[in-house]
């Protein structure tokens, strides 16, 4: 560790301390941008999750059984399904298993389901899960199953599935484009904010240049300042997003689950990734902003 890095870091800390107002302004702008980015990130990740699960379930027909259908009748039904063309696999899923599956999908929020289980009035039906080879097989299976005794409801909605996939990919695209724009905007905002700091220290930079400091030496503290601000903003916004996401999951997790039949992406998994991305992003935004804002001062 040579003295140059130490001097650079010391200077950047001193600088941050002395230009408190400016630093706080940059901090808030990066935090705000990262927050918006974070929301889009969460939306995209959750939509990915939904569309993945939708795709996975695409070749599966779920036949819900009436509660009064007994084991023998169920066996007869399953054999009938097995004889149909294009059917790969037929399995039975009890209400308890269905609840367990839900719990797996819900991840961190599984405890919400524990309450239902504890009450002993599981509303989920027994079901026969039929895996088919392709879409057309699924349709014929659905048609035949509709006329069988003991069948309550068939969960297979091709149109809905297709529409949902279309909507999700549209939202994903839109969000990605927006994230791109936000990144560009954030670099511009940061470079302008750092430029204020640079302007406030223009005299110092000129003196440094005249006395013979190298460009990288002059850039050092500003770069460090940008990175420190970016990383602090990343930590701040990660924390805020964690809190907000936790709140949303706690308060709307069940409703979301009921509508989409899949839960939110697990908090722990999502937030660790988000924090890593944010720190990398914050540091790069800060560094890019600093370098861009200093170009004019160092061309000679």
């Amino acid at each position: 560790m040579n003295s140059r890095l130490v001097v650079s870091f010391r200077q950047s800390l001193r600088q941050i301390g002395r230009n408190m107002a400016m630093t706080i302004a940059s901090l808030f702008s990066i935090t705000a941008i990262l927050l918006i980015l974070g929301f889009f990130f969460i939306i995209v990740v959750n939509i990915n999750n939904i569309s993945e699960s939708v795709k996975e379930n695409f070749d599966v027909v779920e036949v819900n059984l009436l509660d009064q259908t007994d084991e023998a009748d169920t066996g007869v039904l399953m054999d009938e399904f097995r004889r149909m063309t294009g059917v790969l696999n037929v399995t039975f899923q009890s209400k308890d298993e269905a609840l367990e599956n839900w719990k797996d999908q819900w991840g961190d929020n599984a405890d919400l389901l524990e309450r239902i289980k504890a009450r002993g009035d599981n509303p989920l039906p027994n079901a026969i899960i039929i895996e088919v080879e392709q879409l057309s097989d699924a349709e014929s299976v659905v048609q035949k199953a509709e006329n069988m005794d003991g069948v309550e409801k068939i969960n297979y909605a091709q149109d809905t599935v297709n529409k949902l996939l279309k909507i999700t990919s549209f939202i994903q695209m839109g969000a990605l484009i927006l994230i791109g724009f936000l990144l560009i905007i954030s670099v511009v905002v940061v470079s302008n904010t750092v430029k204020l700091t640079v302007l406030a220290r223009e005299k110092e930079i000129t003196i440094m240049k005249y006395v013979g400091a190298t460009n990288w030496f002059i850039r050092g503290p500003f770069l460090m300042e940008g990175i420190v601000i970016g990383v602090i903003a990343a930590i701040l916004s990660s924390g805020l997003i964690a809190g907000i996401y936790h709140y949303i999951v706690q308060n709307f997790g069940v409703d979301f689950m009921l509508i989409m039949s899949i839960g939110f992406v697990s908090e722990k998994h999502l937030l660790i990734n988000l924090a890593i991305i944010f720190v990398a992003l914050g540091a790069s935004i800060g560094a890019c902003g600093s370098i861009i804002s200093m170009r004019r001062f160092l061309d000679r």
Partner: peptide
């Protein structure tokens, strides 16, 4: 090589340019 070159010169400004 410019930084090294400038180090062999000292400069005094009219407005002192103290920080």
């Amino acid at each position: 090589d410019i930084p090294r070159h400038r180090r062999s010169m000292g400069i005094v400004f009219q407005d002192f340019s103290l920080l």
